[in-house]
Design a binder for these strands. Sequence first.
DNA 1: ACACTACTATGACATTCGTCATGAAAGGAG
DNA 2: CTCCTTTCATGACGAATGTCATAGTAGTGT
Lengths: 195, 195
Amino acid sequence: MPDETRGPRERMVYSAAQLMRTQGPAATGVREVVERAGAPRGSFQHYFPAGKDQLVGEALLWSGDFAARWVANYPRTTSNPTPGGLFTHMVKFWKDEFTARGYARGCPIMATTADLAGSESAANEQLRTALDQWEGAVIDELVRMTVPRRRARRLATLMISTLEGAVMSARVRHEATPLTTVVAELTPALNAAVD
Amino acid sequence: MPDETRGPRERMVYSAAQLMRTQGPAATGVREVVERAGAPRGSFQHYFPAGKDQLVGEALLWSGDFAARWVANYPRTTSNPTPGGLFTHMVKFWKDEFTARGYARGCPIMATTADLAGSESAANEQLRTALDQWEGAVIDELVRMTVPRRRARRLATLMISTLEGAVMSARVRHEATPLTTVVAELTPALNAAVD
DNA sequence: ACACTACTATGACATTCGTCATGAAAGGAG
DNA sequence: CTCCTTTCATGACGAATGTCATAGTAGTGT
């Protein structure tokens, strides 16, 4: 939610992330972002002299940080951390999102990949950074559960990939069942890594 | 590849699918599609009187059909069909794509979901149809391997979700390792469904 | 009071977008 | 031949895009 106490710059980055993940960065106009952020139009060119690319890039970094923080918060939600539990925790974010706010909003990383990964946009680097930060947080949690680092990297790739795909399926179908399905099907395989 | 023998209509649908999956449907203009298809500009409004929505929708249906046919072709590639083998076969398409043509092109279904799933576009229905057709083909193959239908549905969801997410990760990273990783990590769990 | 930076305001630029209107060829049927 | 449907050609429309130029205000430090 947009915090009025935060400055216009932060509100623009946040609004950009929200719009990007519902309609993709390509269809998200800077005027639209500025208006939604309740920011003065002239401020955009002041805070983001590099233009739209910069705005999109910062929205991506914000998203990556948000995802990483969500993952890192997992230990505080349980007394018995497991890989399957972590995956459930990651999925829970989207279940809550979908049931509370509908299926209009997706993942900013997926949306930007779809629109810009094929171009030579400057956002490509931040895309990578955001995904790395998110995946790094998952790896850290798995390592904390005594999963060997090398294996943790592989499991993190699996978890994030499956989650992203399930989010896509859920949005297409307008139902959360793909999320619950992948959790149920993946949990045994994930938990086998710590036994 | 665009077949010159096919009519301009089919070429436009194909070109639309190709452009959509590299830059998203939002950033794909009808003029661009027409030009790339080598089709006369005036023909667009004749073949697609409903405008861009119709073009995007048909490109999606084409994509769903393509994916389903690829899946249905699996039995002809092996003498010992297994769920893990099917998943490997699905992943193989993208490995070939990425190594041969780079990481510019992704999945049209993912791209359209990212750009249009949040809107009330007419493409939403064809999105669903395309995904259903693809998933239906996977289910059929699993059932053919004596996987119970109910379980096959769940595994198909898992396979497609994981594949889509891995494709996303691979495009972000500009490397195919996420694809090989998810295959290796998922194969045992998938094959356990037939033993 | 002055100067300097941070921020906001507004208008205009050239492009591109999807769509529509209008008309011209093409080609088979009678 | 004429008629008629299909297909293609071309120009224009209003709206929206990202970006830039220019000028104004606020506020701080000296």
